[in-house]
Amino acid sequence: MIAISNLMGPSKEGKGSARWAKAGQWLFLGAIFFYLYAPIAVLVVNSFNQSKYGHNWKGFTWKWYEKLLNNQNLMDAFWHSIAIGLLAATFATLLGTLMAYALYRYNFTLKRVTSGMLFVVMMSPDIVLAITFLVIFMALGIHLGFWSLLIAHITFCLPFVVITVYARLNDFDGNLIEAARDLGASEARTFFTVVMPMSMPAIVSGWLLSFTLSLDDVIVSSFVTGPSYEILPIRVFSMVRVGVSPEVNALATGLLILSVVLVVVAQLILRKGKSQ
């Protein structure tokens, strides 16, 4: 580790230049984080700004939050997004955990094909995935709306759950599973009483990752959703194209706070899982 940090400067340096190198590193990191956070900071600040256009500060207000809560369409879309996120993350986690276990424990024909398909889902650009979903839904006659959205979201979350859980399974002692089997537990019982609890941290991270991916998605959703079930990205897309919408700032701030809370809770769960 020391060797690497030294690489930033000349190979035989004094203490002074090492300190300079370190300062330079922090400066660089700081600049990147500034780039990442400046736009978000603007959103958060403007969500409390009296001025609609947010070009200058005109005093503190809660009115955009009030407006947000009164904007029925936007709130509906928000709850739809949350519902899809929760459901998709949950089903993807269930399905993905089972898949990871199947890949870990059993040998079957098409095993390589299975992991290949998961890999394709993970690596395909969103736009290509979106098109494949649209094509299959049309071919199967599935109406664009809640179900098409849910299926698409579950599918694009799957590989991330599988990878997370699979890695965890690989880490732990396979003898435990054999021991459970020897004690007479069925395969299913072994899975639910031994494997699931042990991989819980990975399952939680998989869920969290899926929830994030689902909430963040724009491209797939805009292809597979219909009028009966509008979700946030679609609504926000037309709102921000229409113009300055301070409610969107309020919404973004709300989402950000929600996610920080979620991550902290998840960290606590994970830590608990680790200490056990």
């Binding site: 509906d76 929760l86 459901l87």
Partner: peptide, 16 residues
């Protein structure tokens, strides 16, 4: 996980 499922099912039914 069961609780989550239940919660999300309720959410979904409300919204649908």
């Amino acid at each position: 996980m069961n609780k989550l499922l239940a919660a999300s099912a309720i959410l979904a039914s409300n919204l649908a």
